[in-house]
Design a protein around this nucleic acid. Structure first.
Length: 873
RNA sequence: GCGGGCGUGGUGGAACUGGUAGACACAAGGGACUUAAAAUCCCUCGGCCCUAGGCUGUACGGGUUCGAGUCCCGUCGCCCGCACCA
């Protein structure tokens, strides 16, 4: 048996069947043990799994299997993020129905995931496009609507006039639609919004409590929410604005620079701008032009600061004698603050650019440390660092924070037109979440438009609002709009004929609560609060860094919203978060420059010729250039199909390689050599275990008295176990792998020295059992096969994690490195419990120390207990 | 521009709270076994010096310390996030 080569394909299929037949990974909500919820971000069913999935799910599976062995009731589910544009694109290109395309892809990918041997509870599987799932999502939506968490408003959107749809910012490339290439327009549309901004402060504050999240992600979320404290100040108009306003309200975080004010700025979308444009053609033309400029970052960055003087003038709030002109300026955003600003060019770069262009005054009011107030001037760079206020009347000599406070106090106390001139205000960058999409393949928004009653929520008993199957994609735009009858319904309120909402929800909505649905996937309500509260928060969530902001922030908001409507009772959905790195691969290119094309790793052969690697095309033998290592992508053709790898080497090898070498948060480079190394290791373990199984008997009873090699091996077993346990707790898979390699080397060495007494036989059997158990979370099939070969009659997937015998972790001697002047010169082996004095004495008697001292007393002698000795001469 | 991170052999990477730098693996070279290949096993493997042994070495330049890959300051390089947010 043992001499046979390990046949991964046969073995893996066999154990997968056993796990499946015995429902080993089916989880029960009423299990009394402590819970542990492991979740990997669920995949989009694109058609095939890729190496990124293999890495992601291998990591999650290690955690799940490890925690199961540690005695937890583990929830480890899987589902599909199945709504979205690719299905519609496929429908348009290949004449497939989005539903068929999606469910076919799911079936294919489910099959691929199953051969990976993941310890998933497949009984809880669902896809977000399942009617059962989106019914509950509509029910949640209606509850949110009732609780005031949802509203409609007009909002500017990127409109693609060819595809007749709204585009997300990231779908606009250089001002053009990413698919149609048409110039994108800014349009006002009535859209549905979730009130995520109501939770700005809470979402920001609670980040502090997420201590098992990567610091990087926490910081990104903080920046995204973007809290800033400032002052809302009202500037009195000399003559009232055409809107009737007597004062212009602005938001500023720099009230300390108020004496440096040079002009006021209005957003092109500000109501006063709109009103003025009605009688001012030049201004109207300018505003129209601003709207045409794309919202892409590049477009904004390159856009020159421009504006138009409205002729309006305001009074300076702290100095009546100063009048400030009001401009409409292209760089002012309507949806931040009040859509209007006061400009202090000396201390704000944008204001300075504008002032220089229109020749407006630039008066510095913050003096840098040690600068001469008479000589300090502003060139083409605004001064934004710290300093002392000057040129500012009663603020002169104050620090920036003190001046802010002084201005706030003063203006709060003044009243103009019956209201205080200024109020303190906190602003957030975070905007409400627009969820309307003019698409077919998404969750329909369950509301009805009635001519008499307005916007009316669909009645609960009428749910679901189901997507029609008879749909065509012949024309661009939203197929739901064109459907002959789907829109037609009756008003739930008055019973008259009415029309359904044809917008569907952003797919981020689908993924904002799936983790809760897994806790009770068949419930006839969105959640079973008892199940959700019992399982949540997710103890370990694993996924890509690309979701650091949106998906995670939306899910945090959704959890709060679900708490508000009583669907569950907690705020934070993910206790521990881990973001894994990408899978990269070398690239290969045939031919030069524009004539060249990318070729895939499967099309080439790599040889080592005189120490340098050369690649040639398999078909023709043409030389191929080996390019840089990059993220696996279809466009560069540097992908490796997980199924091919698993067919050749088995799932365990693929999993093991993914977990070894690179730290999990970092990118890993997929190499053929690396996979073969992992494969050789699989064979090596199999041979080793076979040899042990043949030449020894299973352990019985307690350990015999030990000494020498047997003791050393037991110490190695328990030390490795302690280290691997700690590594797995901390997701240090690469370190665990390295320790297991070391351990296998140690067992191999012990075995070669002979198995000739009972003590050694016991130690070797223990080592073998521990080895197999430690690798079981990572290579579960090989582990089951070895476990069974070693004579165990239970499944290793159901076995308990072994316990460390602490007494075997300690040695009775310790080896001190001996340094002379900080450089290592030798070692000292001494009893562990030797006192500091004894260590000192022993050190000084060493001949190389004597030699270094040359008869003198040491200048200093540092003994760090159990660590190191340093002699300073 | 703002914010954050990283820089260790030919390569991926180890090194707990400052305490023997390079664990473990990959690649490479040499050898054994074999008709041969594969597989397996053994040896070498940061650089320099003739060896015992020594010197040097964690991007670069300083500093703190008995002792620095780790802490501090500066420089260079790379990566990521955000970006007209007043």
């Amino acid at each position: 048996m043992a001499t046979e080569r390990y046949n991964a394909r046969e073995v893996e299929a066999r154990w997968q069947k056993i796990w499946n037949d015995k429902d080993v990974f089916v989880t029960h909500n009423d299990d009394p043990r402590d819970k542990y919820y492991v979740l990997e971000m669920f995949p989009y069913p694109s058609g095939r799994i890729h190496m990124g999935h293999v890495r992601n799910y291998a990591m999650g599976d290690v955690v799940a299997r490890f925690k199961r062995a540690k005695g937890f009731n583990v929830l480890h589910p899987m589902g599909w993020d199945a709504f979205g544009m690719p299905a519609e694109n496929a429908a348009m290109q290949n004449k497939v129905h989005p539903k068929d395309w999606t469910y076919d892809n799911i079936a294919a990918m489910r099959g691929q995931l199953k051969i990976m041997g993941l310890s998933l509870d497949w009984s809880r599987e669902f896809a977000t496009c399942d009617v059962a799932y989106y019914t509950q999502q509509q029910r949640l939506f209606l509850k949110f609507l009732e609780s005031g968490l949802v509203y409609r408003k007009n909002a500017k959107v990127n409109w693609d006039p060819v595809d007749m749809t709204v585009l997300a910012n990231e779908q606009v490339i250089d001002g053009r639609g990413w698919r149609s290439g048409a110039l994108v327009e800014q349009r006002e549309l009535t859209q549905w919004f979730f009130r995520i901004s109501d939770y700005s402060e809470d979402l920001l504050e609670a980040i502090e409590s997420l201590d098992r999240w990567p610091e990087k992600v926490r910081l990104m979320q903080k920046n995204w929410i973007g809290r800033s404290e400032g002052l809302r100040v009202r500037f009195e108009f000399i003559d009232a604005a055409p809107t009737g306003d007597t004062a212009l309200e602005i938001f500023t975080t720099r009230p300390d620079t108020l004496f440096g004010a040079s002009f006021m700025g209005l957003s092109p979308d500000h109501p006063i701008s709109t009103e003025l444009a009605k009688t001012n053609p030049e201004l109207k033309a300018f505003i129209d032009e601003c709207r045409r400029v794309g919202t892409s970052e590049e477009a904004i960055e390159k856009a020159e600061k421009r504006g138009i003087d409205t002729g309006l003038r305001v009074k300076h709030p702290l100095d009546d004698s100063v009048e400030l002109p009001v401009y409409v300026a292209n760089f002012i955003l309507m949806d931040y603050g009040t859509g209007a600003i006061f400009a202090c060019p000396a201390h704000d770069q944008r204001d300075l650019d504008f002032a220089r262009k229109y020749d407006l005054s630039v008066k510095p009011v913050v003096l840098p440390k040690n600068a001469d107030p008479a000589a300090f001037e502003i060139g083409n760079e605004a001064f934004t660092d710290d300093g002392t206020i000057f040129n500012s009347g009663f603020l002169d000599g104050l620090s920036i924070p003190d001046a802010k406070e002084a201005v706030a106090r003063k203006l709060e106390a003044i009243s103009i037109g019956g209201a205080p001139q200024a109020e303190r205000q906190v602003n957030y960058r975070l905007r409400d979440w627009g969820i309307s999409r003019q698409r077919y393949w998404g969750c329909p928004i369950p509301v009805i438009h009635c001519e008499d009653c307005g916007v009316v929520p669909e009645k609960d008993e009428n749910l679901p609002v189901q997507l029609p199957d008879d749909i065509n994609f012949d024309k661009p735009g939203n197929p739901l709009d064109r459907h002959p009858s789907w829109r037609e319904t009756t008003c739930p309120n008055c019973g008259k004929p009415a029309k359904r909402e044809t917008d569907t929800m952003d797919t981020f909505v689908d993924s904002s609560w799936y983790f809760a649905r897994f806790t009770a996937p068949d419930c006839d309500q969105p959640t079973d609060p008892k199940a959700a509260n019992g399982w949540l928060p997710v103890d370990q969530y694993i996924g890509g860094i690309e979701h650091a902001i949106l998906h995670l922030l939306y899910s945090r908001f959704f959890t709060r919203a679900m708490q508000k409507v009583g669907a569950l009772d907690l705020k934070e959905p993910f206790k521990g978060l881990f973001t894994q790195g990408m899978v990269n691969h070398e690239t290969y290119r045939l031919g030069d420059g524009a004539n060249g094309r990318w070729v895939s790793p499967a099309e080439i052969r790599i040889e080592d010729i005189d120490g340098s690697r050369r690649a040639t095309l398999l078909d023709t033998g043409d030389e191929v250039t080996i390019g840089s290592v990059e993220k696996m992508s279809k466009s560069k053709k540097n992908t490796v199909d997980p199924t091919d790898i698993i067919d050749t080497y088995g799932a365990d090898t693929a999993r093991w390689f993914m977990l070894s070498d690179s730290p999990p948060e970092r990118d890993v480079i997929w190499t053929e050599d690396g996979v073969q190394g992992a494969w050789r290791f699989v064979q090596r373990v199999w041979r080793l275990i076979g040899e042990i199984a043949e030449n020894s008997e299973p352990r019985g009873g307690s350990a015999p008295a030990l000494s020498g090699n047997a003791l050393a091996l037991r110490q190695a077993s328990h030390r490795t176990l302690a280290a691997v346990t700690a590594d797995l707790e901390g997701l240090g898979f690469n370190r665990a792998v390295a320790r297991i390699y070391e351990f296998v080397n140690a067992i191999g060495k012990a075995l070669s020295e002979g198995l000739n007494d009972a003590a050694m036989e016991y130690a070797v059997r223990e080592a073998a059992d521990y080895l197999v158990q430690m690798m079981a979370p990572m290579m579960p099939h090989l582990a089951e096969e070895c476990w069974s070969a070693l004579g165990h009659d239970n499944l290793i997937s159901e076995a308990n994690w072994p316990t460390v015998d602490e007494t075997l972790l300690v040695d009775d001697t310790v080896t001190y490195p001996i340094q002379i002047n900080g450089k290592r010169r030798g070692e000292l082996e001494i009893a562990k419990e030797a006192s500091k004095e004894e260590v000192e004495a022993a050190t000084l008697s060493l001949d190389f120390v004597q030699k270094a001292l040359d008869g003198n007393a040491p200048k200093k002698l540092i003994v760090v207990p159990q660590r190191i000795v340093n002699v300073v001469v």
